[in-house]
Design a protein around this nucleic acid. Sequence first.
DNA 1: GTCTATATTATGATAGAC
DNA 2: GTCTATCATAATATAGAC
Lengths: 187, 187
Amino acid sequence: MSKKEALIDATKQLLWEKGYEATSPRDIQALSATGQGSFYHHFDGKKDLAIAALEEISREMLDIMRDNLAAKGPAQQRLESYLCKPRESLKGCRVGRLANEISMQDPQLGQPMRAYFEELTELLKHAIREAQEDGSLPAHLDAGDLATTLLAVVQGGFVLSRAQDRTDIHQSIARSMINLLFGGEAR
Amino acid sequence: MSKKEALIDATKQLLWEKGYEATSPRDIQALSATGQGSFYHHFDGKKDLAIAALEEISREMLDIMRDNLAAKGPAQQRLESYLCKPRESLKGCRVGRLANEISMQDPQLGQPMRAYFEELTELLKHAIREAQEDGSLPAHLDAGDLATTLLAVVQGGFVLSRAQDRTDIHQSIARSMINLLFGGEAR
DNA sequence: GTCTATATTATGATAGAC
DNA sequence: GTCTATCATAATATAGAC
C-alpha cells in the first residue's frame, strides 16, 4: 500500500472515531506510519485529505446501500432490511457523524456528504415506490417524505445511541417503524 | 449580569454554533468580555464550564418540552405539535448536536445529555400512552419504542438538515409521521 | 473577582536533505 | 516520494498584580 493510500485509510478511520476537528495531521501521520513529507506531498493540507477520505467513505457506503436497496426481491423486505441492518450504533454513522462539524462550515468538505444523502434518499424513494406499486405500502404516502423519514430515523438512532450510551436504540426504532409501515395487528 | 453568568451564556451560545471541540476558552472570553481571571476563578477549565452550560441548556429545553408535552388538551394534538414545532434546523439541536463530540468521550460531560434524552423519552412515552387510552393511537404499538422513534426522527431531521443544507426536512418528516401515526386516508 | 502577562503544549504547515 | 527539523500560531492553563 502506498503512503498516499495509507494516509487516506488512516483519515477514514480517525474521522469515524474522533471526527474532523479532533483529528490532527499528526494523528493521521502516527496512525499511518508516515512523515510530514508524504502528507504535504500528496495533499494540500488537512482539509484536502479529509475530502479525499470522505469521498471514499461515501462511495463505500453507497455501494453497500445499493446492494441492499436496489437488489432483487420484494421491496418491503429490502426496506425492512434497511431498517434492521446491523449498525455500530455507538460509533455513529460514518458520514452523518460529521454533519455538525463539516457541512455548513465548508462547502467543499460538505459536498461528498450532501451527495451521499441525496443518493441514499433516491434509493429509498425508489424502493418505497415499488412497495406502493405491489401494494405492501399505502399509495397515499408521499414517497419523498417517507424516504427522508427513514433516513432521519436511522440517523437519529445513531445520535440517541451515542447520547445515551445505549445499544438497543436502532432495534426499538426498527420495530416501531416496521409496525407503522407494514402493519402490526389491526391493519 | 455577573461575569460568571456571562461566561455560561457565551458558552451556551458557542456550544450551539461551533460545538465543543471548536470552542476555545479564548472564544468564550472574547464573547463574554471577560478575562482569563474570571474564567479560571469560577471554573476549573473548559470542560467544567461546558458542563455548567450544558446543564442550563438541558434545563431550558426540558422546560419548553414539558410545557408542550405534559400540557392539557388532547394527547394527539400535543404529539403533533411536538413533531411540527418550529425548529432552527440548520443550527442543529442544542443538545443532540454535541452527541458525537461529547457523550462517550467523557462521562461527566455526557451526563446532562443522557439526562435530557431520558426525560424527554419519558415525556413522549406518557403522551403516547394517553393517546392510546383515548383511542387516537393503536394500543398494540409499544409506547417506549415509539417514543424513541419520535425522538430519533427529530434528531435525524437536524442531521439531515445540516448535511444537505436544507430547511424543509423537518416538515417532510412531520407530515410523514403524522400520516403514519394518525392515519391519512385509508385508516 | 477581575485583570494582564506568561508558560506549555498542540496544531497545521514549511524547508530542505536524501 | 519520503524523511526529519523547524516554524508560526492557537489552545489551554497558571501566576501574580489590583
